[in-house]
Design a protein around this nucleic acid. Structure first.
Length: 347
DNA sequence: CATCCACCGGAAATGTTGGGAC
DNA sequence: GTCCCAACATTTCCGGTGGATG
């Protein structure tokens, strides 16, 4: 093993939260104002929206660690905890400091949570809410919205999700969520943030200016850019030049997707690989039928039992939510009712 | 104007897991 | 062990969808 140019991987890791946030002063101020607004009874909600890679999750962690250490926070990653029941179990754990025995009924969990929240007044963060809504509807939010205890509910999602559309009107009207949207970082802001991370993670002068520019302009998604930086830095002993960066693009894109899909099933990854195959094999955009065929072939070659059309249709929606593919929906016309799919230009 | 494309997406059915009660 | 039950992932079923085509 050679020395490499990475002095500290921490600032390049996806969960790293910096000591201070650049270029988000306004959003932070809004969030603080909302969190500290005068108490009222009943649940209080605000919806934090922003494209993937705009730092929604990181900003919230930053804020909640810093400001509200006195308040109890229950963090629900809805892409994993994608049913009301799973989310309730997590909330139960957080508000009681105790693990629920399995076999508890939903109503029993709800009752305990309701009792506990009169005392602890937790902040409940529902990150990647779209996954829960898609899988299980708005039962959880309806339950939370009807509590008469003081709690703060923070749904977090992409800007494509409009709660007024996606929630039953009874849920929406009792939640009345405020809304805060994070804008994309500008190219210059991305450049500065990436430069700062490089200073903390790499040896001096090991990331060339041209490479940094390319990184900053390649994607609006900071997490992807950092992942690419780390991939490039880990594969050289001297310095990240622009050409070395470009060489590692494909590798970085795939490992990024694999990391993202880690919390999902094997089939999600097989599906993504099948999409990669198809994209290379044919120019032009793909339709869900051919994508399914490619997925099935890959399953057969690897001895994995294939899932049904219907199931894979849902998994495609997951890939779309994760911003790994871009999709046009056709509800009829020459092509019939289908989806046209394009791999997101990874970087 | 009828028919067709090619799959969407809701809903019900099925199969599996794991706990509690007897 | 056996029966019952809830939650859950997945399959099965099926009624659409709207421009193009003849």
């Amino acid at each position: 093993m050679s020395q490499g140019i990475i002095t500290d991987t921490t600032p390049l890791q996806s969960h790293y939260i910096p000591a201070s946030f650049q270029y988000r002063a306004q959003a932070l101020e809004q969030l603080r104002a909302v969190l500290n607004s005068p108490a009222k009874t009943g649940p209080f909600a605000f919806h934090l929206r922003g494209a993937t890679g705009t730092g929604k999750t990181h900003l919230l962690h930053f804020l909640l660690n810093q400001e509200s250490s006195s308040k109890l926070t229950s963090y629900i990653p809805c892409h994993r905890l994608n049913t009301e029941y799973k989310a309730l179990k997590q909330i139960y754990r957080d508000v009681t400091n105790d693990s629920p025995q399995d076999g508890y009924h939903t109503a029993a969990l709800q009752r305990t949570i309701e009792n506990r929240t009169t005392e602890v007044k937790p902040i409940i963060v529902l990150d990647d809410l779209e996954f829960l809504l898609e899988n299980d509807g708005d039962d959880l939010l309806y339950f939370l919205s009807r509590l008469e205890t003081d709690l703060t509910i923070i749904p977090v999602s992409s800007p494509a999700i409009d709660l007024q559309d996606r929630l039953e009107s009874r849920t929406y009207s009792s939640l009345q969520p405020a809304q805060i949207t994070l804008d994309l970082y500008t190219a210059d802001e991305r450049y500065q943030i990436l430069a700062a991370r490089a200073r903390n993670a790499l040896t001096e002068h090991s990331l060339q200016r041209a490479a940094l520019s390319t990184l900053a302009s390649a994607t609006t998604h900071l997490g992807k850019a950092l992942h690419w930086m780390r991939t490039a830095a880990a594969t050289t002993d001297t310095a990240v030049t622009e050409s070395h960066l470009i060489e590692t693009r494909g590798q970085a894109a795939i490992s990024y997707a694999e990391q993202t899909l880690d919390a999902f099933t094997d089939h999600h990854l097989v599906l993504y690989r099948a999409l990669l195959d198809q994209q290379q094999a044919s120019e032009g955009r793909l339709r869900s039928g051919t994508v399914y065929d490619a997925y099935r072939d890959r399953c057969r070659r690897t001895g994995l039992d294939e899932l049904s059309h219907r199931r894979i249709s849902d998994f495609l929606t997951h890939l779309e939510y994760l911003d790994l593919i871009a999709v046009d929906y056709h509800y009829g016309g020459q092509k019939g009712k289908t989806r046209e799919i394009e791999l997101r230009n990874p970087f």
